[in-house]
Amino acid sequence: MKEARPIAVTLNLDAPAGDWLRLREEIRAAASSLGIDKIGFALADPFLTLKDRLIQRRENGYDCGFEEKDIDKRTHPELLFDAPLSIIAIAVAYPTRLPDPPRSEPGASRGIMARSAWGLDYHTVLRDRLGKLEAYIRERIPEARMESMVDTGALSDRAVAERAGIGFAGKNCSIITPEFGSYVYLGEMITNLPFAPDEPLEDGCGDCTLCLDACPTSAFVKPGVLDANRCLSFLTQSKDEIPDEFKDKMGNRLYGCDTCQIVCPKNKGMNWTHHEELAPDPELVKPLLEPLLTIGNREFKEKFGSGAAAWRGKKPIQRNALLGLGKFRDRKALPLVAQVLAEDPRPDIRATAVWALERMGGPEALEALDRAVLHDSEELVRKRAAESLARLKSE
């Protein structure tokens, strides 16, 4: 049998198509050694179908505000990269089960971080993987041009992954891979290299609607269409006060929401522990709620700064901790929540403390709310406290 001809280090952009096919498969075979679980190739053509969807999404007010504002940049790779020919998509699988998880107990209530915030910040991990992939390609093609992006880049990671055959787009808007379910981080690299594209996968959801049915806030307008303003994952990351209709539904979520992935049959039994830097620290991903209310900026950065949940700062997590304490009706935390209402300089945090105190109830809560009605400097907080006070007294 004839031995396969190795790819020459000096392969140039005018090499025969067969050389590019061999290099593509060589890259695919090397992926695991680079810390990449799955790799796919796509053409760098405009994402016109996605563009239509994004325009309609914006017109309907479903945007979350975190995405690139320029829809053309999100859908036209040629606006980001001179003469792009292909896009390489990668996926890295992450853990889903917490070893020896600490449990919430009376007087020791805990919150939960979504699985995407476990371990080292996935942006850091994927940039490392894409950097290794760039170096691998550049060794073989010195004249290659490449530009990598993860999550915060202009392109849609999911649209690229779908086109490159990484997985299919589920009804819950997640990319679902046959091998790893939807528990994968996604990244991509635009190149000037003429790689032949992989075939997209067929839809695998069928008639299943478990994810749509399980969403706590009915955030899915229809299969594949998410109203971010109702999505708990986005709400946990916002810096504003949570709308009243969602406060109780937040539960003890501190960052993100996994509900639509947990119920997905494609994720049954999936748990990936082969990337050490993604291993969760149980005390960080299920932290006690009370200490979060008084944590300082320096301590917050030292404790949570290496994870994905820290990017919005401590304020959203403190607000979410108040909601969790209220959800649990944790009376042990009542004096501290009352202190937040009396002393915290942020009006929206004080307003959230009002909600938590109303849920806890009792004479101490009534006293704290009464003081807020009389003395708080913000009209919004006084109004919320008065409403809560009236409801508690009527009960």
Score class of each variant (00 low, 15 high):
8 A>D: 13
19 D>R: 10
30 A>Y: 05
40 G>V: 00
40 G>K: 04
49 T>L: 15
58 R>N: 12
61 G>E: 10
66 F>I: 14
67 E>H: 10
74 R>L: 13
83 A>E: 14
94 Y>L: 09
103 R>F: 01
108 A>F: 07
116 S>R: 00
116 S>H: 04
119 G>R: 02
121 D>S: 10
131 G>F: 06
132 K>G: 15
140 R>Y: 02
143 E>N: 09
146 M>K: 11
152 T>P: 08
153 G>I: 12
174 S>C: 15
195 F>C: 05
198 D>I: 09
207 D>K: 15
215 C>E: 02
215 C>I: 06
219 A>T: 09
223 P>H: 08
227 D>W: 10
227 D>A: 05
231 C>K: 01
242 I>D: 00
249 K>T: 01
251 G>H: 03
254 L>V: 07
256 G>N: 12
259 T>C: 05
276 E>V: 11
277 E>V: 11
278 L>M: 15
280 P>L: 07
286 K>W: 08
296 G>V: 11
305 G>F: 07
309 A>R: 02
312 R>Q: 12
313 G>F: 08
316 P>F: 04
317 I>E: 01
325 L>V: 10
344 D>L: 07
351 A>C: 13
352 T>K: 02
359 R>I: 12
359 R>P: 01
368 A>V: 07
370 D>G: 14
376 D>A: 06
388 S>E: 05
388 S>T: 06
